[in-house]
Design a binder for these strands. Structure first.
Lengths: 218, 218
DNA sequence: TTCAGTATTTTACTCATGGTAAAATTATTT
DNA sequence: AAATAATTTTACCATGAGTAAAATACTGAA
């Protein structure tokens, strides 16, 4: 059947709008009740529809969850990749600045939407041990991998250009990523469900200075 | 009703044996299928009994889980507390040794039973965001708190005795705990379900050296 | 405007799983 | 051997993810 282009357009807009409504409701409910506690019926009710309609837009609860945090992790990957490019094209004069920038990327990503970031943490925690699957979930994992590779490339390039001491690249990358991740979790758990721990920034800063002392030759 | 002491004894032994069988089966199944994937029926089948019998010994799945990892976290708390006592009673001559010992405690706890440790990580991850409750779970949380306090006391005492530089105690403690925790998770996620990541030890060592450089005055 | 065809949404389910009440079984004391 | 107490199992409930099919709303052509 042929359809008028104007109509096709409107339909696509409506679909996007509904997708947005679902995501918005999902975010709200999941923030309130955490992933496990948020039921699909809750989310549907929040969006003013019924459960099966959600399944018209998202294949599973996991994929809905993944779609929610996708923009955040994409932005993270992009920012890290930008630093990588800058290091590789010799834009940086000091290793210190690289480390500061990397930590700022982490922190900015967190600060720009702490609620969403909290969901991101939950996604990693739940996803890793409750065997999630599905297209969207794989996508997130893939982008996560990109973050990791960007991190490795940054360290590797910085070492090659003499901006960092001759450290072991995988160990350093694992340490940076792992410590950031762990600190965020610890602060979040200590602080509870609402708001940002006021300690997060200073503790990350502490780690940043530690790394600078260890990695940068003066 | 009065019972002969020998019989009472045997009954207690039988109860302990069954408890042990359930825990063993639970460990096996949870390692295979992770917490969420392990059903109570699975565990019961593994122990050669039926589900309701488990509920005779453990109030909820959460408590069964908690009972599983309790010995591990108690041992961790004890070891940290021993270091605390040693620092406070001036047994340590160097800050370096303190940091090495703390990291060894972490690593030994992990190495003595990696499978159990993996469950411990899952427990934290799942428990934190799937609102666990119950007596046993509270107990775990309480012991976790003890670990944290021991850590703080160690740093605080070491600073007071001039073994560490004058660092901010909460920030330092959060960093040490968080980075350890994050690194374990990152390595575990990278390495997958089976075995220990060969990177864990070197990455922890990396962090250890970083901390020594930052905290210890030479 | 009305009808045939299509897309979307909802009603009314299924299935899996944590947890439980009550029946059945086994053990213990007299 | 009968009475009683403890333990285990059978048969169930409640909840929540996911789905088939009915119902509704929308689109294009006459």
């Amino acid at each position: 059947m042929h359809r008028k282009p104007a109509v096709t357009d409107r339909i696509r807009r409506e679909k996007n709008r509904r997708t947005g409504e679902i995501l918005q409701a999902a975010l709200k409910v999941m923030l309130e009740k955490s992933y496990t506690g948020a039921t699909m019926d809750d989310i549907a009710a929040g969006a003013g529809i019924t459960k099966p309609t959600i399944y018209q837009y998202f294949r599973t609860k996991d994929e809905l969850f993944a779609a929610l945090i996708e923009p955040l992790i994409i932005s993270l990957a992009d920012k890290l990749d930008a630093i990588r490019t800058a290091v590789e094209s010799e834009k940086y004069k000091s290793g210190k600045k690289i480390i500061r920038d990397v930590y700022n990327v982490y922190y900015d990503t967190f600060e720009s939407d702490p609620d969403l970031f909290r969901l991101f943490v939950i996604f990693q925690q739940v996803g890793m041990n409750a065997g999630m699957s599905g297209v969207a979930v794989e996508k997130i994992r893939e982008i996560g991998g990109k973050c990791f590779i960007a991190g490795q490339s940054i360290v590797s390039a910085a070492v090659a250009r003499g901006l960092f001491r001759k450290v072991d690249v995988p160990h350093t990358t694992d340490f940076v990523w792992g410590s950031f991740w762990g600190i965020v979790q610890v602060e979040q758990n200590k602080w509870g469900r609402d708001g940002i721990s006021p300690y997060l920034k200073p503790v990350l800063k502490f780690g940043e200075n530690l790394l600078i002392a260890a990695l940068v030759q003066d």
